[in-house]
């Protein structure tokens, strides 16, 4: 599979429009993240792709051809549902063995998946004794078991600790590097920001923005944080420097550094003041606005009358 397009998808539950003409495209080697507040339609769209919900309108296009979510398509995907809870009566290995049997996969792959999510040591224990994070890792192991070309992760960070999130990030990276596709939905953009190639922002069943993180940053034109490291022994007054930086945006001062929030189009101008303060600045770091901030701005723009 090289591309999957969910085109003009609409879903109606009774009187509620869960999705209204949403189009999302997945490409080989790409990680697409769906974001949006509760009830935005992220899980509904995921379930349309899984064949769990029949859309009232719209179509699925795989590699340029109209397709349906049949068994052939399902063999190509791995899925982690939100807050999945496997049977307490079975061990982690038994749960995984079921999914392996169902997909015609051997024990070696089961062991590999358990090792990949760092659950080998707990594999024989009953799921009843698993922590929330361990259950989520087991869900991840189920999703990656068959090494599917398309990985669908619904709120994958739920219950994961820092180590678990790092594991998740490395798995997503692995899928991207291998030229596979990942579609994930999350409330927590910050933790997976580095892994995202494209973002889809949904609100009340409508697509309000889509694009690469760079495109979305450009669209909302949020200020970048530019931090200058300063020498403390310099003769020039830090206050003068702060005043000069102030023309570009709000300035935060610390003992040996200053941070100014600058609009993207004025980024180059900031450095133009430095000839007036020779030797004062020893280093510079630019931090673009986080995807979380971009997302919040996009939502705010949408809600403004």
């Amino acid at each position: 599979m090289n591309s999957i397009v969910l085109r003009d998808i609409s879903v109606r539950f009774g009187n509620v429009d869960a999705l209204r003409g949403v189009t999302v495209e997945l490409r080989r080697g790409e990680v697409v993240m769906m974001v949006g507040p509760n009830g935005a339609g992220k899980s509904t769209l995921t379930r349309v792709l899984l064949g769990l919900i029949q859309p009232t309108a719209g179509s699925l296009v795989v590699d340029g051809r109209a397709a349906t979510v049949d068994n052939t398509f399902k063999r190509e995907l791995g899925y982690l549902p939100e807050a999945v809870a496997f049977s307490d009566n079975l061990s982690g290995r038994q749960v995984l063995r079921f999914f392996a049997r169902a997909r015609g996969i051997g024990r070696r792959e089961v062991d590999a998946a358990l090792a990949r999510v760092s659950l080998s040591a707990a594999a024989q224990r009953a799921v009843r004794g698993y922590s929330k994070g361990m259950r989520q890792r087991l869900g991840l192991a189920v999703a990656i078991l068959a090494q599917p070309p398309l990985l669908i992760l619904d709120e994958p960070t739920g219950g994961l600790d820092g180590e678990g999130v790092a594991l998740l990030a490395s798995l997503i990276e692995e899928w991207r590097t291998a030229g596979r596709m990942v579609l994930l939905s999350s409330h927590h953009l910050d933790v997976l920001e580095q892994q995202v190639d494209r973002m889809v922002v949904l609100r009340q069943g409508k697509l309000i923005a889509a694009g690469t993180p760079r495109q979305l940053r450009e669209r909302v034109a949020l200020r970048h944080q530019v931090t200058f490291a300063l020498t403390s022994s310099h003769g020039a007054s830090h206050d003068d420097y702060a005043a000069a930086l102030g023309q570009f945006g709000p300035v935060t001062t610390q003992t040996d550094q200053m941070t100014v929030e600058v609009l993207p189009e004025r980024m180059l101008e900031v450095t133009s003041i430095h000839p007036r303060f020779p030797g004062l600045v020893t280093g510079l770091a630019v931090e673009p606005p986080s995807l979380e901030m971009v997302y919040r701005r996009l939502l705010a723009e949408e809600t403004q009358p």
Binding site: L50, G51, L52, Y79, P81, V84, V142
Partner: peptide, 12 residues
């Protein structure tokens, strides 16, 4: 348990 979707996402 949120596993019905997972089960039905299998080729079955």
């Amino acid at each position: 348990r949120n596993t019905l979707g997972l089960l039905l996402s299998l080729p079955v």
